[in-house]
Design a protein around this nucleic acid. Structure first.
Length: 563
RNA sequence: GCGGUCGUAGCUCAAUUGGAUAGAGCAACAGGCUACGAACUUGUAGGUUGGGGGUUCGAGUCCCUCCGACCGCGCCA
């Protein structure tokens, strides 16, 4: 395909497939007037079957009373005779065992490269669709440092947030601070014990207190500020003070860890604030208005059994205090008010909650299908072949900060989103520390750095031409076609992440792009003696670099020019 | 006991939501730099997708049933 043809007729894969689909529909309407078919395309798993395939012949086989193989062959023959110009758009159209396999002409893929170069970071971005999403992830109790589970939750959540924004949604990212109820008292008592131990090392630590050493520096700061002021006072006097002081410090540290991890939130919602501001009533009142509550034995119940739960749930205790569930009702009610969809990423111990939250959505007259709960499954930390103990009760926690110290943000974030959220993850610290090539982030980053290195060796004039006005027609080598085809998948990949809430696809896609580039690099000399080839390949490098950086960026991983 | 999630190569995980001969990485073995970064690449080997049954042109995917693992089931948070 000549260059002028490309400019006059910027045929992109989606458009070309649409043309083919229309041709097939016309042919089918002619031959089988009663059959209503929708022509869909999929990417075959095996590359020798081409770029795309359609399975229309299978659904027609019954109506046609013929084998799918015959139907497919007939359709291809019909389409060929009716639309001979298709030969300029496809390099092959073949019926194979019932499927119709399609291979696009190289010029179509070259057009995608040109589009990437033209649009840069905006390539594949969807227009704003006006839909709002409330997305919560990472949330932890304010009673200790963030650990590896929150690391995974944040990696998944932040990548998902990026993909959703890129797909046109307005995403509101939030964190709930569980700072109400008894656990904050436990925090206060634990912190108080650490404080007293500064003056008297034999001072007993509470049986159910939060072990580990992380409260000691906070206690030290407290003693520097207040000296021995609290040593002789009553618990009623010091408990609220210590609990609040501890919470503030720990939330501050959690926020710092999140920022270091590259994650920013639109809202840090304090549970206690929901209570104190009276907002806690709103969700409960809403349920009451809708007639889904009743009083029994002095307590207020939610009729959860009418919404699929196995038991009615208490909202207000006999003593008048609202339960955790009441807070959750209110919090989710607010999320439903500010989002057309609500997405929670929860820990593995909360998956009993999925049904309850969907039931709650129905009770609140909100579409349960618009509520999504993603469970970030368990992580097993290993050091070589030895499992790292992470018992919170025993106090031997491994903090997220320690992990980042060891392996860096890039490796941690990439590793955390590599498996799907529902799949348990085994994370070997020893291998990550060794920066062994088992850690796939280096593979992808190396691809990016390798391109940067080639560009450094290229002439500035060649790069300028490649960026601004390249003739891409020399790109026809198998490795070049495979790479171009991969780059073209980017928008569809991001859409898939958003639609299926599957951020792990970002990491796998980035790896695939890198693999296709490395193969291209091995098989094709970029800085060729032939000027036309050289400029075209430099253009392909620029497009690849842009897509790699974009994919890594979605995952929150840096794209270095050298490493 | 009830409910949820899951079970795929020796290990860690995919599989475009029902498509063709189930794919990658690591580990193992055998190859590839006098040229742009070998942190790369080519090939070989590795499987009854936990077992069995069903639905249909077609099942890792959907239904039933066993086996096994993890987890939830409080007027705790």
């Amino acid at each position: 395909m000549s260059r002028t043809t490309i400019e006059l007729e910027p045929a992109l894969p989606e458009g070309v497939l649409q043309i083919f689909a229309t041709a097939v529909e016309d042919a089918v309407a002619q031959r089988y007037p009663d059959a209503a078919v929708k022509v869909g395309f999929e990417a075959p798993r095996r590359p020798e079957f081409g770029d795309f395939a359609t399975n229309v012949a299978f659904s027609l086989a019954k109506v046609a009373k013929r084998s799918p193989q015959d139907v497919a062959a007939q359709i291809v023959a019909d389409v060929r005779s009716r639309a001979p110009h298709l030969d300029t758009l496809f390099s092959s159209i073949e019926p194979t065992s019932g499927f119709i396999n399609l291979r696009l002409a190289p010029g179509i893929w070259q057009n995608v490269v040109a589009k990437i170069l033209r649009e840069g970071a905006r390539f594949g971005e969807f227009p704003r669709n006006g839909k709002r999403i409330s997305l919560e992830f990472g949330s932890a109790n304010p009673t200790g440092p963030l650990v590896v589970v929150q690391g995974r939750s944040m990696s998944l959540g932040d990548a998902l947030a990026h993909a959703l924004r890129f797909s046109g949604y307005d995403v509101f990212v939030e964190w709930i601070i569980n700072d109400a109820g008894g656990q904050l008292d436990t925090l206060g008592r634990s912190l108080y014990a650490r404080y007293r131990q500064i003056y008297d090392p034999t001072f007993p630590f509470p049986e159910d207190g939060y072990p580990g050493d992380y409260l000691r520096p906070i206690a030290r700061d407290l003693s520097e500020r207040d000296d021995e002021k609290w040593v002789d006072s009553e618990e009623a006097a010091w408990l609220p003070y210590f609990a609040t002081f501890g919470r503030d410090r720990l939330v501050e540290e959690q926020r710092a860890t999140a920022e270091r991890f590259g994650v920013r939130y639109d809202l840090w919602q304090s549970e206690r604030e929901l209570h104190e501001s009276g907002k806690i009533r709103e969700g409960i009142d809403r349920l009451r208005e809708l007639g889904h509550t009743y009083e029994d034995d002095g307590a207020l119940f939610f009729r959860a059994t009418e919404f699929g739960d196995d038991k009615d749930r208490v909202l207000i205790r006999r003593d008048g205090r609202p339960t955790y569930f009441a807070m959750d009702v209110t919090y989710h009610y607010q999320k439903m008010l500010r989002g057309d969809r609500v997405i929670d990423i929860l820990g593995p111990d909360h998956h009993g909650y999925i049904g309850r939250l969907k039931g709650l959505a129905r009770a609140l007259a909100y579409d349960p299908e618009a509520v999504h709960v993603l469970i970030a499954q368990q992580i097993t930390l290993m050091r070589g072949s030895e499992q790292v103990s992470m018992s919170k009760r025993a106090g031997d926690i491994v903090t997220l900060d320690e992990i980042v110290d060891e392996v860096g943000v890039d490796a941690a974030r990439f590793f955390f989103i590599l498996p799907s959220a529902e799949s348990p993850l085994t994370f070997d610290l020893k291998l990550a520390v060794e920066q062994s090539n088992e850690n796939p982030v280096y593979y992808v980053q190396y691809g990016h750095a390798r391109i940067a290195s080639v560009l450094k060796n290229a002439a500035a004039a060649d790069i300028a031409t490649a960026q601004q006005n390249p003739d891409l027609s020399p790109l026809s080598h198998a490795a070049e076609l495979a790479l171009m085809r991969r780059l073209a998948e980017f928008p569809e990949m991001v859409r898939g992440v958003a639609e299926h809430l599957a951020p792990h696809r970002i990491a796998r896609y980035a790896r695939d792009v890198a693999a296709d580039f490395h193969q291209f690099y091995t098989e094709c000399r970029i800085l060729s003696d032939d000027a036309a080839t050289r400029v075209a390949r430099l253009a392909l490098c620029l497009a690849t670099k842009s897509i790699l950086a974009r994919a890594l960026g979605l995952a929150g991983v840096s794209a270095p020019d050298s490493m």
